[in-house]
């Protein structure tokens, strides 16, 4: 095929794409929406999955009663999981480690990165509380040997120990380690590991379905103009731009 033909064909395709975008009116679209079969019990499951994964144990219990939806995990395990999460969020890392091991000692055994991050968090808490000597001892005994095994652990250890070098940690380059967000990060890592150990997905399904909706709308935009939902929280249908 000559170059001319290739260019010609591509131009023709581009033109066709510009003009052949299918227009779907609101009326047609609503008819399609009405034809979809959504089961109530499936929506209930989706909500239950959110409550369970995010750890709303009381709400999950109530929802089980009010809607008859069975949770996809033993509700008692949520309480334990949330206790661990909360312990990390409050800075009681030692307590959290103990609780994880009570739940299932394999979680930390099989997950060296998580264990390292918990120990790192413990070091951060010691520094936060001004226990310099204890922090040094802990870093040398517990963290340094692990750092030698793993380059990325070593780098994180360096960053953490650097906290000790500053008098005013609130204004130093590694100060973010002392931020609440660092605790939340560690807490959600533990949370995910516990869920995985319980053969449960670590993330709720609802947010990924919402992502999928945005993705599907974007994909369809390439081929059609149709009523979109732009604001997920109101779920209002907006007319296609013509």
């Amino acid at each position: 095929m000559s170059l001319f033909w290739i260019v010609f064909r591509q131009l023709a395709e581009i033109e066709a794409m510009a003009t052949s975008k299918k227009l779907i009116t609101r009326e047609e679209w609503e008819k399609k929406l009405n034809d979809v079969k959504i089961r109530k019990e499936d929506m209930n499951k989706l909500v239950m999955n959110f409550l369970v994964t995010e750890g709303y144990v009381d709400a999950a219990e109530k929802f089980q009663k009010e809607s008859g939806t069975e949770p996809d995990i033993d509700l008692a395990t949520i309480t334990d999981r949330m206790a661990v999460k909360k312990a990390v969020q409050c800075g009681n890392v030692e307590d959290a480690i103990e609780k994880v091991n009570d739940l299932n000692p394999e979680i930390l055994d099989t997950n060296p990165q998580l264990f390292f991050h918990l120990q790192q968090q413990r070091l951060i808490e010691l520094i936060r509380n001004g226990k310099v000597e204890e922090a040094l001892e802990f870093a040398q005994e517990e963290l340094a040997p692990r750092g030698e095994e793993n380059q990325s652990f070593l780098e994180e250890l360096e960053r953490t120990v650097a906290l000790l070098a500053f008098e005013d940690v609130s204004n130093c380059p590694v100060g973010e380690l002392l931020d609440i967000s660092q605790r939340l990060k560690t807490a959600s890592e533990v949370n995910a590991a516990i869920l995985t150990s319980q053969s449960h997905e670590k993330d709720p399904k609802l947010p990924s379905l919402l992502k999928m909706l945005i993705w599907a709308q974007n994909q369809l935009d390439e081929k059609a103009a149709y009523p979109r939902i732009n604001d997920l929280s109101t779920a209002m249908l907006e007319d296609p731009a013509v």
Binding site: L33, L209, A216
Partner: peptide, 18 residues
């Protein structure tokens, strides 16, 4: 229909249409 249901319907129709 709840908001959630409307979103799920929209998702389904978008995927089917595509």
């Amino acid at each position: 229909r709840s908001h959630l249901e409307r979103l799920l319907r929209q998702l389904t129709v978008c995927c089917l249409e595509r």
